[in-house]
Write a protein that binds this DNA or RNA. Structure first.
Lengths: 65, 65
DNA sequence: TCTTTTTGTAAAATATACTTGACAAACAGT
DNA sequence: ACTGTTTGTCAAGTATATTTTACAAAAAGA
């Protein structure tokens, strides 16, 4: 799978660490790391939580990798 | 969880049965049914496959339930 | 009414998302 | 050089998405 650079930059734009984002959306830091790295395939609910935490929409963060 | 009526209507607009959509995206009919019914929480890759099959984007089908 | 397609639903099994704990490398600040 | 934060990664476990088989109700067509 491909790295999710849109997620990485959206997180950077909010000056948030993987840890901070993970806590805000209620998952482990490794999960956020794996999603950014493209290792797996988050669930829709997690994608939505991440988008809301970053002030983005699904299309902006997860559409067109 | 809430029913996904946007998915249901997008599928209807393509004149596609749950079965037909399921085959097109490579999952079982029950999975499509459960997603429409709101029973669970598909993975991102499945959401993307469904959107492509229906000619929609993530925001149009899965954003704001 | 009869037949076929579509949909709703359930239980048991399998695949995989996600967790926890842990360790090391890269980087920033002092 | 030292300290603390961030990131990358691994292995073993738990939770849950998805499959398969199966049956019945609802809708559509003839």
């Amino acid at each position: 799978m491909a790295k999710n650079l849109k997620l990485k930059s959206a997180r950077a734009a909010m000056d948030m660490s993987q840890q901070a984002l993970a806590e805000k959306v209620g998952v482990s830091r490794q999960t956020v790391n794996a999603i950014e790295k493209g290792d797996y395939n988050p669930t829709l609910n997690l994608c939505i939580a991440i988008c809301k935490a970053l002030g983005k929409t699904l299309d902006e963060v997860f559409w067109g990798e």
